[in-house]
Amino acid sequence: MIPAAYPDLASLVQAQLAIFPEHESYLSTRFRNAAPRDLAFANELAAMIKTIAGQHLSHFCADYRWLAEVIIEEEIFFRREGRYRLSTFAEADAQVYSNEPYMRRYVNGILLSQLWWANHTSVMQYFRDTYLPGLPAGARHLEIGPGHGLYLYMAAREPRLASVAGWDVSPASIAVTTATFKALGYPGRIDLALVNLFDAPGGQFDSITLSEVLEHVEEPDQALRAIARLLAPGGRAFINVPVNSPAPDHIILFRTPEAVFDTIREAGFDIEATHLAPISGATLERARKLALTISATAIARKR
């Protein structure tokens, strides 16, 4: 399925299929027509995931299988009802965030989804290859909700950035990000802290990543205004939101990429560039027509 030139990707596919053989057709389709550049990025990502999982790789693969089954249940509800199952942060907190065993499996599964779900991989590649190189030298970078830590790790490896920080309101999430940096052997200093973005002083960053966060908060417009406030004049934000993407803790449904981009503009940003990544196996046209998941990403500059 995977050419020999990409050994980490090939071995991770094999590890996943040993746990989840029913996923073979999906993964085969996922990588069938991938360009060499995309396979090289996937191979690099696979190497990082294998390092993070370490001797627990089979557990991570089992957690991904579990996540895929959970997503099916959410997809059934979404397709029948036309909305996400939950609508408040309190519900998501009770069912997911405060449920430690559930949360651990969920985060592990999400880590593997960065590779197995084409839209996730595509956005991460866009972040590394387009967003980061466009930042000015000396930029102060922050990620809100760094979770699995791969975006923050890629930023931390960018030598032109003056500082890199990660904020979350969940100690468990900060612990996951810390573990990622430790596993990957990052030698520098990362400022990981329990901070609520609504409470922090403004104007202290030149770059902020907000990846797959807005669909988790009750007032995404207010979160975006808080991001704008944290940015220095002319600062940039990398904002990634999946549309039509049911998950156990998604409470805000964006139905189109344009709805995401309009919300970003209304919060005080100009959009400099966008990137649309449809779900694995779908063209953008088909994803729009059938209301399938599209990761809608904007590089936005504070107005």
Binding site: E22, S25, Y26, T29, A68, I71, I72, E75, I76, R79, I279, S280, G281, A282, L290, L292
Partner: peptide, 11 residues
């Protein structure tokens, strides 16, 4: 059917 994966099956 190449496009008929588990999510498409739900749809």
């Amino acid at each position: 059917v190449k496009q008929w994966d588990s999510l498409a099956n739900v749809q």
